[in-house]
Design a binder for these strands. Structure first.
Lengths: 122, 122
DNA sequence: TTCATTAGTTCATATAATAAGAACTAATGA
DNA sequence: TCATTAGTTCTTATTATATGAACTAATGAA
């Protein structure tokens, strides 16, 4: 498993653009929606199963890192696994309704069109 | 002034990740907040005055393009200017509360810390 | 213990995206 | 006709992303 310590930004350093950026990738958004729906921890391997098709685990690992550094999830080592959960209460206090509105909007939308691949922004 | 036709995606093609991406840049978020607050059109030059410091107009032009292609604004040529306005009603219908929640959250937040420069996401 | 397995991280690199100065273009108005 | 204004497009240096390969740490046998 990995090595370096896990850095979680204090909630004061979490920003709106940072959150939006982290959630602007369909895979990360799917991971976060899953975390929100199941209201429990998720690890990389479990997340890989959520995302349709085969996403390399190195890519998945980086997506978790981005979510962590944006302040959206908290990760904790549990044996060989890395359990991640949403920082829901903190985020709700600092940015009321923001996360939930985004996730619910996406949930509704993604029932129609499932986006798997990275989106080209150009 | 420019030349090529302005492409506005139909609202059906507008996505949540696309909107989040477009708003994940502090400058674009500032532009959109300004558009939302003044409830009228804004052009590139006026936007440049909103953003503190000197942003090259080529960069500003590209930001407007990204907002346009994400489906957040509609642009219309008026003489030499390009008047842009929010697609507020359409967005509200397709993604209720999404845009307004993001903008209000950011407005509150940006009263504390004003972010001018592009944010490094790594 | 030692070794294999599991779960994830880090590295290397090819590809894509961004910022910004320079050159360019279209609409006005002297 | 020419200068001005307001953007756009081009070019290039920098930065970011995806992914396969190599690596590492925690467990669980044998």
């Amino acid at each position: 498993m990995g090595s370096r310590p896990l850095n979680h930004p204090p909630i004061e350093q979490v920003t709106v653009p940072g959150i939006l950026y982290a959630l602007s990738d369909p895979i990360r958004l799917t991971i976060v929606v899953t975390l929100y729906q199941q209201k429990s921890c998720l690890n990389c391997t479990a997340a890989l199963k959520q995302v349709r098709g085969k996403l390399p685990k190195s890519t998945c690992s980086q997506h978790f890192q981005i979510l962590r550094e944006a302040g959206i999830i908290i990760c904790e080592r549990r044996g060989v696994e890395l359990a991640s959960k949403l920082r829901l209460a903190e985020l709700e206090t600092k940015f009321p309704k923001l996360l939930v509105t985004i996730l619910k909007t996406h949930q509704i939308e993604s029932k129609k069109t499932l986006t798997k691949k990275r989106v080209r922004h150009t």
